[in-house]
């Protein structure tokens, strides 16, 4: 079961990807749990990852330590959302 607020976090992650990567709203709206991110979205290079993480911090009021950043959390939209929710909802 997903905790309260999970959907809000998911929409925040979607908004961050849209705004930071300049992805149009229709395309971002179609992202689901299985949508691959790093390595699959050409806009998401390593510099853009830094921007995405920092913007997530700003919007969710969380702090992401550099040693928490790994390939797994960036693999899919679902994985990034689950990571963000684990920081924001505890």
């Amino acid at each position: 079961m997903q905790p309260d607020g999970y959907h809000e976090v998911e929409e925040t992650v979607r908004g961050v990807l849209r705004d930071v990567l300049g992805i149009d709203a229709d395309r971002a709206a179609k992202f689901d749990e299985a949508t691959p991110l790093f390595g699959a979205l050409p806009e998401l290079d390593s510099m853009a990852v830094a921007g995405v993480l920092t913007e997530l911090e700003d919007r969710l009021g969380i702090v992401i330590e550099d040693d928490e950043v790994d390939g797994d959390m960036l693999e899919t939209f679902g994985a990034l959302t689950a990571f963000a929710a684990s920081k924001a909802l505890t």
């Binding site: 925040t12 705004d19 300049g22 853009a48 700003d58």
Partner: peptide, 23 residues
Amino acid sequence: ETEAKPADAKLSGSPLWRRAEPD
């Protein structure tokens, strides 16, 4: 309005400072 930090006012808009391509 998407930022968590407090402010005297919040406005809707996009964080242009994050964009790799100026917009």
